[in-house]
Design a protein around this nucleic acid. Sequence first.
RNA 1: GGGCGGGUAGCUCAGCGGUAGAGCGCCGGCCUUACAAGCCGGAUGUCGCAGGUUCAAACCCUGUCCCGCCUACCA
Length: 952
Amino acid sequence: MMASSGGGSDLDKAYEPREVEERWYAFWENEGVFRATDDSADTRPCYVVPLPPPNVTGSLHMGHAMMATLEDVLVRFERMRGKNTLWQPGIDHAGIATQTVVERQLAREGKTRHDLGREAFVERVWQWKAESGGQIMRQMRVLGASPDWTRTKFTMDPDMSAAVIEAFVRLYEEGLIYRASRLINWCPECRTALSDLEVESDEGQSGELFEFAYQVDGSNEEIVVATTRPETMLGDTAVAVHPEDVRYTHLHGKMLVHPFASRKVPIITDAILVDPKFGTGAVKVTPAHDFNDFATGKRHDLAEINIFNLDGTVNAEGGPFEGLDRKRARAAVKKALDELGLVRGTKPHTLTLPRCQRSGGVVEPMISTQWFCKMKGMADAAIRAASDGRTQIVPESWGKTYNHFLESIQDWCISRQLWWGHQIPAWHGPNGEIKVARTRPPECGEGWSQDPDVLDTWFSSALWPFSTLGWPCETRGAAALKKFYPASDLETGYDILFFWVARMMMFGIHFMKEVPFRRVLLHGMVVDETGEKMSKVKGNVIDPLDLVYGAKPKAIAEHASPNMPEHEALTKFKRSYPSIAADIEKGIGFPAYGTDAVRFTLATYPPSNKRIALAPKRIEGYRHFANKIWNAARLCLGHIALVDRAELTGQAPSVKGFYNQWILAELGKSIAIAKGGLSEFRIDEAANEAYRFFWNEFCDWYLEITKPILRAQQQQESGAGAPASTPEAAEVRLTMAHVLETSLRLLHPLMPFITEELWQRIPKPYSRQSSIAFGPFPSAADGVGDERVTGEMAVIKAVVGAARTIRSEHEVEPKADVPLSFRTGSDVARGLLAEHLPAIALLSRGKGLGIDNIGGAREAGTAVSVVPTPHGSIEILVGLKGLVTKDKEISRVEREIKRIEKELIILNKKMAKKDFLERAPKEVIDESIARRAQLAGARARLEEAKQLASEL
RNA sequence: GGGCGGGUAGCUCAGCGGUAGAGCGCCGGCCUUACAAGCCGGAUGUCGCAGGUUCAAACCCUGUCCCGCCUACCA
């Protein structure tokens, strides 16, 4: 360990996150920092955020990291503000996903779930859950997330399951849940029904429009239909034409011969289904396998012939095609039609395939008996709650999408043909009776069996904001439910606005008679640097823990594209993240950025961005920031260790020194901005402001400008031995201690680890608690100051900047002190300069010589720069005689002149072309004029610089 | 088809009516005892394109072209 020599602190020279992070996370958990209390005696206001429960099968991805960061920032902010803060964690049982994982595991053992039987299979899933489920909760700790872990829930916990059963039964009793046979989305791969939301459309697939003829019964006429799914003709029970389509008027009411079935198919007229301009104007109608056709069938009372088994193969209705899967059946039907001479051609056609969100299999519309939940009434209530502001949606623009979804909502198919999930509390009797009850009714004995289906995973998620708090149990959960419902904020990615947020709104209002949360905060999707969605297929997945702990290219490749050769995976990866391609090639991969840097980076993207393109290189900048904080604290510690804690009141000290007043004023402004950002879900604004304040004001100006005040003090101490201290230095130390402590508190929600580590080491008011996480968050009282001070400081900064620029442009030796003098016509400015001459001289490495009125002669060898101020302009004169090594200004201006001359030559050539002149001469002439003016200006500057150089 | 978002410096992004900004990268100079993961200075943009409103537009309006996402039953 390298102790710093100057500061006298025992901090390492650079910040090393890993050890610090593990230590403080353990501390927080031991201290109970994250705990919320439902004690009714606690009168603090509450702040409640339900954690979107990740899937039990999941492991951390960037989306989780984003969510965890944003929510943790909010939660820590409010906790520091003294609120009784509950961030409710949990895990979702994820019906289909989890069942698939375990079934796959069984498949490797050569077994299916049917070999085990339902009970043993479910047991097996529980076993899997115990061993490898919920890894994500451990990973979230690495990110510094601060939910109340003691309240963690799993959607299949007994109490959670009881809530699900209760909700189902109540809705059934209210007539809002019903059982019906209708066309639903069926995934032949998962062998279960799906809700509309679980079906994704795969657009732009190239397919064909296949045309074939039906013979008119008892005539040699035919009618040609077009279809993208020829195999479904096995289930055709009508052909529809538009009633006003004159091509087919004479066929109305006629029957057609089905080429493979004994039945006759009627020609019907339907203005809703048929667009006479599309295809042949005649549509084959398959009510059992198409949503439009189903509706048409209902209108015309057509037979619904299901031609598929549950696994997607053709059933007995398919006659000779029985047993073929859909793809083969299609080819076979086409071939058979061809043999009968009924094919009338094909046309290329792009189509949209419905796919199962989980398996990716093509979804088949099937007629099936399922449980449904009526949505209309609940949806209306949810719309009203958002539009009257009981729940505020942020950003507002999502309100439209939310409304549109709810306005056009269909009844929700809630039953799934799975074994893993909440089994539906309904019992079927021997004669088709159905009883719904919380527990098996005693009268349902012999011959009765429970409905084998389970509920859609999202059914239990929809109850999350109250089921986690003990609903419906009146005794055990009453206190928590009373205290923590409704939640304050529901923060999540917009991708589950429909799946989850809207459904929580509906169920929350229905069961609790009050909205489940006051605000819905939606953030965008984390995508790769080029804007592409992260996926293993694209090979652009980043494991957040790799960013935190660092990762070599090999590990990066494995996480980005599992099971792909490393080289290939890295090639893909570099394409997705150009900013770090070089680091990958060099074998560096990701350095260990540390949690705070990763969090801070994520926090600097406006959450409202729909796409959040992660540039890993950007994290590096914020890792440097962490290091900056670390080192600033090292410097400060050397001085503020002398501060008596009793002097720290927890409020901004009242100070006389200008620079102290100024930094306190800046601090106050930054606190206000940061607070505003955190309150309005503009966390990026808070992060940027805190960054700017700490680095660009506190470090770059305050710490530099106060050094001499403190340094003089130190010398005196070491020399005389007596701890004499000037009042000025004491005031600086006090201010510095306050600003540092307040800055750490300001940054804590964003960078919890480094701030805790440093905060524990610095002097602070006695009133502070055991952890920075307890706050308080900085308030207006922490930063006071007025515009006058900041305005004056702005002048000082500008003057120093001008002097520095002159030094740099004329390449003055870095160590040399330059003579500085000023001229101004303003008394105010003159006063200001006189007062701050030492600071200006210090920061511009100059000797402040004096302040003159404008009019005095300029000495030879002096460069001038004019700074405008609100009080009139100031001329800064820098004596350069004998100090200039080589003059950059001259060569710079010379280069500029050459460039402009070149451009002029090109322009002249253009103007010389006659045809061009006739077409569009104006722009060229204008440009030429502008360039000539530039040239003249540059030449004048060159003269000036040369003049100056000659004087030196 | 409908809806939403985006196109600003080489890259990732702020700004959304009043003299173009940040980080990273780039150029030049500094190992100045907090920090080279740093300090100081600098360059870089017809703010997607075309119209319009305005004293003033990256910002408002209209049209248009790209890109992305969501949503819809066109066989």
